[in-house]
Design a protein around this nucleic acid. Structure first.
Lengths: 108, 108
DNA sequence: TCCATTCGCAACTATTTGGTTGCAAATATA
DNA sequence: TATATTTGCAACCAAATAGTTGCGAATGGA
């Protein structure tokens, strides 16, 4: 559980996506989060650790409790990537591609 | 390399994200794609297999060649999830949360 | 001070992942 | 027909992942 720590890795796991959604509604402690899942507190804690490493989530230390918050700017990176993808899709040149294929076939 | 096949798993790997971007520009065969990467054709092929399972990509059989296309509707699922997240974020009730915490502290 | 609670860390396990190589099937070309 | 090209599939491997249990540190209340 070491490498390739980015937002996309963060949202790959369904439990982590659920954690993100719960934290989007309300910042929470690991225990409060764990109550929403079948898996143990430690499992949730590990996901929080990963989410923290990805900077998708930020811990706020309050005495012995740790309240986890969504780090919104990091989530925007997904949006950004998606926008870029959509831009490329809108610019795709199937027609030109078709023409090029035709030319190549004629060449042969 | 078996389970949990969804769009989020599909975009978790940086190579797969690159493949998606390339295919967004222009539908391509595995060989054409592999030229853009250091890893072997088989590695790229495996990613294409995963992307096909996730329905992020659709194969078009042309004789011995297979042209891979982006399956746009599937990509929209990411957008959909992100929209839901953004909605929850916009509705988050930090103020209320704060009030509840205050009440709880007083109760103790 | 003593005890319960909250939590991270370490060790361990089974499964999944991303990659490799080798091979066989199908198609195109000579 | 013989040969080269494009491709998927199977077997294998090292590393990462998701989960577990057990422990110890720090905090807060009695």
């Amino acid at each position: 559980m070491e490498s390739r720590r980015d937002v996309f890795q963060a949202i790959a796991d369904p439990t982590r996506r659920a954690i993100i959604m719960l934290l989007a509604v309300n910042a929470m402690t690991p225990n409060a989060l764990a109550e929403h899942f079948d898996s143990s507190r430690q499992a949730v804690s590990k996901h929080l650790q990963i989410l923290t490493e990805c900077e998708v989530v930020t811990p706020e230390y309050k005495g012995r409790e740790i309240v986890y918050h969504i780090n919104n700017p990091k989530m925007k990176e997904i949006e950004k990537w998606l926008e870029e993808f959509k831009l490329l899709m809108s610019r795709r040149f199937d027609q030109l591609d078709h023409v090029l294929n035709e030319l190549q076939n004629r060449k042969k």
